[in-house]
Design a protein around this nucleic acid. Structure first.
Length: 284
RNA sequence: CCUAUAAG
C-alpha cells in the first residue's frame, strides 16, 4: 500500500492522471489485504486530479471514499480546497473550509488557512484576509513561513506595499526567517508596482540574506527591472545567471523579450522568440 | 506513505 500510495502521489507533479488511475486499478486488483486502498490512497489520487485541474473528478474522490467506508480527513479537504484555489475559485474553497468543520468536525490546520489565503490571493480578495487571520488566531493556529509568504503575496499583488512590509516586520518579530520565496515575492511586488527604490532595496535584502537565488529568482529579477524601465540591468541579470551556472528555461527566455525590446535589440529578441517557438509550442 | 506559498 505504501508503495502504491507513494507512486500515485508521484503522479501529482506531472499531473499524470492516466498513470495514477492505472496504479489505482492495479492496486484494487491485487486482492491482498495489505494492498487495499486506504484514505491516504484516496488523498493521493485526489491530489493528482487537483493538480490536473480536473475539479469534477477531484470531487468524485470524496464520494468514492465514503462509499468505500473511508472518511475524509483534513488532508482530503486541504487538497480539494487547493484545487479550487488554483483555479481562482475562492468561494468554493471557502465553502469547503467551512464544510470540513460542519460536516465532519475536522478543525482547520495551518495548511487549511494558508490554502484559503492563497485562494484569496489569486482572486485579489484582500478584504477577506484580515478576518481570516483573526480566525486563525482564535483557533490558536500560529502562522508559519508559508503562511507569511502567502500574506506577502496577497498584499504585494494588490499593491499594498505598506501592509506587505508589515508582514515582513511581523516575521522578524516572530523569529521567522524569510526564504527565497519571500524574497522573490517581495521583489516581484515592487517591480509590479514600478517602485524602483523598493525593488532595488528588496534585491539588496535578498543578497544580504544568504539565500541562494533559484532559476525563478532570475526571471523575477528580469521582470522587475524591466517593469521599472531598467532594461540594461535586466539583461545583466541574464548574464550573471549563466555565469552562476543556471540553464535558462522557457520562462526565463520569455522574460527576456521585453527588456530586449526596451533596449531596441529587436534582432536578438526575435532569435529568442524563435528558439522558444522551436522547443515549445508556445504562442507569443 | 498523502496536502498549502514565488517567475511569462
Amino acid at each position: 500500500s505504501y508503495t502504491y500510495n507513494t507512486m500515485i502521489s508521484a503522479c501529482a507533479a506531472g499531473a499524470q492522471v492516466d498513470e495514477a488511475e492505472r496504479l489505482y486499478a492495479e492496486m484494487k486488483s491485487e486482492r491482498r489485504e495489505e494492498c487495499l486502498p486506504t484514505r491516504v490512497t484516496f488523498n493521493a489520487l485526489l491530489d493528482v486530479y487537483g493538480k490536473a485541474k480536473d475539479l469534477e473528478k477531484a470531487k468524485t474522490v470524496i464520494r468514492e471514499m465514503v462509499l468505500q467506508g473511508q472518511s475524509p480527513n483534513r488532508v482530503t479537504y486541504n487538497e480539494l480546497m487547493s484545487a479550487f484555489a488554483q483555479q481562482g475559485h475562492w468561494q468554493e474553497a471557502e465553502e469547503l473550509f467551512n464544510a470540513m468543520e460542519g460536516h465532519w468536525g475536522l478543525h482547520p490546520d495551518v495548511f487549511s488557512f494558508s490554502t484559503l489565503l492563497s485562494a484569496y490571493s489569486r482572486a485579489g480578495e484582500v478584504s477577506k484576509v484580515e478576518p481570516l487571520l483573526l480566525k486563525m488566531n482564535a483557533y490558536g493556529c500560529p502562522p508559519n513561513l508559508i503562511t507569511y509568504n502567502t500574506l506577502v503575496d496577497v498584499y504585494g499583488r494588490s499593491g499594498m506595499l505598506k501592509e506587505m512590509e508589515g508582514v515582513m516586520e511581523e516575521m522578524e518579530r516572530c523569529g521567522c526567517t524569510p526564504d527565497i520565496v519571500t524574497w522573490n515575492t517581495l521583489i516581484r511586488s515592487y517591480g509590479q508596482a514600478q517602485n524602483q527604490e523598493g525593488m532595488v532595496n528588496a534585491i539588496q535584502r535578498l543578497m544580504g540574506s544568504g539565500c541562494r537565488p533559484r532559476i525563478r529568482t532570475y526571471s523575477t529579477l528580469i521582470d522587475a527591472y524591466t517593469a521599472c524601465g531598467m532594461a540594461d540591468d535586466a539583461l545583466s541579470v541574464y548574464r550573471s545567471m549563466k555565469e552562476a551556472g543556471h540553464t535558462p528555461n522557457t520562462l526565463t527566455l520569455l522574460s527576456l523579450l521585453s527588456p530586449l525590446g526596451q533596449a531596441g535589440k529587436w534582432k536578438e529578441a526575435e532569435e529568442i522568440a524563435e528558439t522558444v517557438r522551436r522547443v515549445k509550442g508556445v504562442q507569443l
